[in-house]
Design a protein around this nucleic acid. Structure first.
Lengths: 231, 231
DNA sequence: ACAGATAATATGTATGTACATAACAAGATT
DNA sequence: AATCTTGTTATGTACATACATATTATCTGT
């Protein structure tokens, strides 16, 4: 029996076409992989890969035994690329620079301490500014768990940003990230070269190495900054 | 020759472990799939799947012939699940409700028209509010391209939100999304039950069906709202 | 020396096959 | 009826193998 040598991408496209043209309505059940493979003239594994890909994007829901259905509400999974700050700035053709504003060693305030799940041990607190073409781009407020990364205590972070040092020295296994908006208070506005009361995008990250927290960062972008993605 | 029946997940974990423990330093070259497969006692395809997965997350860079390297700057791809508003609200245990504030048919303002790449044809303009437990959750400002979705003209959107109607009636093939922050002006603050000058997270989406734009939305969340993700 | 053809190589993917696993269904047991 | 057991089924994944494709390295003729 001749196979027509479909690629998994072509299967994906055909499936998407059938969803768009309502051949398979929202919430509807797809034929099983085996039948689909036979109909399209390819191997089941090829269909499997295509469907798995669409499921990862949130377009299909798959469950063993029950089968594959078109997602009722296409809660698409949008992916944002989160580069290191130097890269983000240089990618837009600007010159990157960095300034350390504060370096202290003390117990973090309760909310941070709770989020990082650490005892009342001291942590390293850093505040710094990342600039694009000498204009403030983002303000970084960071806590580093010295129980997890003791070497950080001996780094001065004057020339190398914690952002980059940690990437090279503190591996992590998992993390959480969130975006929000914040009204700039006077000192933050001053640091960012903006006006008090301006609105900024903030990005909060918490990383873990196993069960131990590594670092907690809050990035406050200069007003007007957006993060983008395509899907 | 006995295979040890590795799963691709176990290969992924082992690779991640070696990256973390600096067995394979940042920017370093990994052995080729074939060798790795032999070393770990599994098939090359299994290694392929594991490495492909890590590359998708931005942890590895792969290029034909050149091989696989540990990403210099681990620009991890963070995925956000973007559900329909009703789902997002009900998922947090609140009662969903919706109110249409404005419905008009006119040519969109230049920035929107440019983004949607439409002539000076009229579009459908909708403003509405989505509420969680009767408290404003997000303000929606939407333009619908009537050249692409003419049926929208005959829908009143009084009870069914455009958010949900479009999901069921206007398929799209691609889209862009961005997040930003905005300072609330007086009318917007009033609509959201907030104060003028408060800071809100905004989410802008533009969807396409092939070369034609479908809809352009700006969501303005109530102050304090954050979007989250794990990685 | 240089441009263009050619070979070598690592990843990418398609196939047939086999078995694992989750989830539901139906039947057996209490 | 409630619970436990046992099938059945569709997806999930592992393997050997073969070939495709992109990219680099090398050779070759001028």
């Amino acid at each position: 029996m001749p196979r027509e040598n479909q690629t998994w991408q072509s299967v994906r496209d055909e499936v998407q076409r059938r969803i768009q043209t309502r051949v398979w309505p929202m919430g509807g059940l797809l034929p099983k992989e085996e039948d689909l493979a036979q109909e399209l003239g390819c191997a089941r594994v090829t269909v499997n890969r295509a469907l798995r890909h669409l499921a990862e994007q949130g377009i299909l829901n798959r469950k063993r035994k029950s089968g594959t259905r078109v997602a009722e509400f296409p809660a698409r999974n949008v992916r944002f690329r989160i580069p290191i700050l130097r890269e983000e700035i240089e990618a837009q053709g600007a010159v990157y620079s960095y300034a350390l504003l504060l370096r202290a060693q003390l117990a973090p305030p309760p909310p941070v301490r709770a989020a990082m799940q650490m005892k009342d041990a001291p942590a390293l607190h850093l505040q710094s500014l990342h600039l694009a073409d000498a204009r403030p781009f983002v303000f970084e407020d960071r806590w580093i768990n010295l129980a997890t990364v003791p070497e950080a205590e001996r780094v001065d972070f004057e020339t190398l940003s914690a952002n980059e040092w940690l990437v090279g020295h503190a591996p992590f296994t998992a993390g959480d990230m969130s975006f929000g908006a914040v009204r700039l208070d006077h000192p933050m506005a001053k640091a960012l070269g903006a006006h008090e009361g301006d609105s900024s995008l903030t990005n909060e990250r918490l990383t873990w190495d196993g069960a131990q927290s590594v670092t907690h960062v809050t990035l406050t972008y200069a007003p007007g900054h957006r993060i983008q993605s395509s899907f």
